[in-house]
């Protein structure tokens, strides 16, 4: 059996070093991310920015998940967790009407394998007068609600998901929160 010489050993160690750094990037960083808690307490009596000038008052008992929260200047997302229920708001630039925005969100939902929209859409509105459309969907092992609003060339997409039992318990609080959605400049 041929023995490995010093040069080959150095070469092999170099390659192992490269793999180790790749491993650090691909697995080490996600492990470090997982080791730190993502949830932060958030006051439920003052508006929280979802980005692009859109604010929402969090539901009582909700915590903020910082991994899904990116409130930027021109677009943004915010993710709350109410127990096991996921309450997400995404604000994105959009040129179109409410029906087109709702259609876009419904298509994105059904494009996800196993997801189906379940009911006709209802009109909803926020306390500040933003008009929106609301519907429901099912996913494997969970159900969900969505709402869409359009304001100032932005679409505000709200998705709520969890199992039916948890949803039934938390939906009133979350829908109350959704009604506090407000775009900058909109009268309180």
């Amino acid at each position: 059996m041929a023995r490995i010489n010093r040069r080959e050993l150095t070469n092999l160690l170099g390659a192992v070093g490269v793999v180790a750094i790749l491993g650090g990037l691909a697995f080490g960083l996600p492990a470090a991310d997982r080791s730190l808690p993502a949830e932060r307490a958030v006051p439920d009596d003052e508006p929280y920015s979802a980005g692009a000038g859109v604010t929402v008052v969090p539901p009582s008992g909700a915590v903020l998940d910082v991994t899904g929260t990116r409130p930027g200047d021109s677009q943004g997302t915010v993710l709350f967790r109410v127990g096991p229920v996921r309450y997400a708001i995404a604000v994105r630039p959009f040129r179109g009407d409410l029906a087109a925005a709702a259609d876009r969100l419904r298509k994105r939902i059904v494009d996800t394998t196993g997801y189906q929209v379940t009911s006709a859409q209802l009109t909803v509105s926020t306390a500040g007068g933003l008009a929106g459309l609301q519907g429901g969907y099912t996913a494997p092992g969970r159900g969900g609600r969505y709402s869409v609003f359009v304001a100032d060339e932005h679409t505000i997409e709200v998705t709520i998901s969890g199992n039916d039992l948890d949803l039934g318990r938390t939906l009133p609080r979350i829908e109350a929160s959704t009604r506090t959605l407000r775009q900058n400049g909109e009268p309180r």
């Binding site: 960083l29 996600p30 991310d33 730190l36 910082v66 991994t67 929260t69």
Partner: peptide, 9 residues
């Protein structure tokens, strides 16, 4: 993604 999450955390 992980590093962006770490920046947020």
């Amino acid at each position: 993604v992980a590093l962006q999450n770490l920046v947020a955390k």
